[in-house]
Design a protein around this nucleic acid. Structure first.
Lengths: 251, 251
DNA sequence: TCTCCTGATTTACTCCGACATATTAGCGGT
DNA sequence: ACCGCTAATATGTCGGAGTAAATCAGGAGA
């Protein structure tokens, strides 16, 4: 399933940029700026970002660039604009919070701890069930992907970006093995939250116990087709993470 | 939770349109056109939609309109464009399949039955857990919203759009009662699938047994704070739906 | 006098097309 | 195999015409 790159034929990972980063294009940068401003609460739902020309001038960009940025925000449900009325920030329940880019904006500043909790809660619901399905549906390629990710995790540890990427790959491989696209989409969202949290914990020098054995238990259960065991093993993994998050919140 | 309107201050709900529809703006229409084309498989991942000007001419719109449409598709992860290389359709796992608009495009034509299944599977995972949380966290306002939705369901039945909307409201109220934004976002995605399916079943004159009693059981459990009971009651509800979907698939 | 309807005004988004720039895939030369 | 060139293509800019709708003023009715 390694369709790794998505746009250029090979591009042997000279720079991993391109997808991450504030915005590789001008309107992307504007969208990032406005998006983070909205997600961080600088603009509240109902506020209007009135004045297409005014904003374009203030940001030193053309109206077109500003408009395309607004288009992006509109596509993600953050704002809606109407003639004469201006561009308003929509209520929070219209936001596409699971969109990877929106998530990135949410984690760009100080993310709302309540939101992080809700993501982990979602994870605690979804991943055990996913592990159960994966145990029933995985094939050899899936198992290989998981195994590779595990060895990479061991090799680099969670203190490095490479290690965290391997962690994400492991969980993504499980989601993939469920043969369920809707679940797979969630991996990006959940991964972002997990990634941010592990980084945060690392900064706080509060890395918990070695996560490898827990992951291995999940792998073994999935490999042996033990659905109930996989669900249970994943349960302890995510419950542990949820616990950690809860304790982080209390400080 | 009736914050009904979202853009104008009061505007006593003269028309609720605005958000639905193929595209209220020109570039919205283009995005709809291209989006449905991609979702229906007319363009496959890897295909390139080369020729900004060519497309703009073919669609009889200006480059700006086409460009803004592409911006929207890019924001939803359907395509990516680079100078010289053209605009390519991204692999499926980059698509924001849970985005309400993308979902709309997916259901605009003949939706992939496998994808519908995966949405229902996601629902079967998420909603029982949500019902469990709702039973623990709901307040009086939540219960009122659920009760109102139930009476509306009884009143209009699932054969009318009003009835289906009430059904969606009921489930949305439960998700809301979980106090979990990440879960709440999923309601839109799941609701779209459920809505399409009930419509489909109705067309096929294959409406199953009266769904009201099952819903009432869920409500009662949540109202009485019975977490396990709520999860179980919701389980039978979603399992029934999953079953129906499976049988529909076999024809 | 107050309220409600009606219409003109004004404001801000929407769309357009042309121009200038930046990037890079593909190719041909070294 | 490597490197630089070129042409193709997307990106960014600009200013203006078009259009929808919120606001306000004026008038009719209560």
């Amino acid at each position: 399933m390694q369709e790794a790159d998505y746009i250029n034929g090979d591009a042997s990972a000279k720079q991993d940029d391109e997808a991450r980063g504030p915005g590789r294009r001008l309107h992307g940068a504007i969208a990032h700026k406005l998006g983070t401003a909205i997600l961080s609460g600088k603009y509240l739902p109902g506020d209007i970002l009135s004045g297409e020309v005014a904003f374009a001038e203030e940001l030193q960009v053309s109206r077109s660039a500003y408009r395309e940025a607004i288009q992006v925000l509109t596509a993600k449900g953050l704002v809606a604009s109407r003639p004469k009325a201006g561009t308003r920030v929509l209520p929070r329940d219209r936001w596409n919070l699971l969109d990877p880019e929106v998530l990135g904006w949410a984690f760009a500043g100080e993310p709302d701890i309540e939101f992080v909790r809700s993501l982990f809660e979602l994870r605690a619901i979804v991943e055990p069930a996913a592990a159960r399905l994966a145990a029933q549906r995985r094939d050899k390629a899936d198992l290989k992907a998981m195994k590779d990710a595990l060895t990479a995790m061991r090799r680099y540890t969670l203190t490095t970006e490479a290690g965290r990427a391997a962690d994400r790959d492991f969980h993504k491989a499980i989601l993939h093995a469920t043969r369920n696209d809707a679940l797979l989409v969630l991996s990006a969202s959940i991964g972002a939250a997990v990634n941010w949290t592990t980084q945060f914990k690392q900064r706080a020098r509060a890395l918990p116990r070695n996560p490898i054995p827990d992951h291995v238990r999940v792998y073994d259960a999935i490999a042996s087709g033990d659905a109930a065991g996989a669900a249970e093993a994943m349960n302890v993994l995510v419950d542990l993470a949820l616990e950690d998050t809860r304790s982080s919140m209390e400080e």
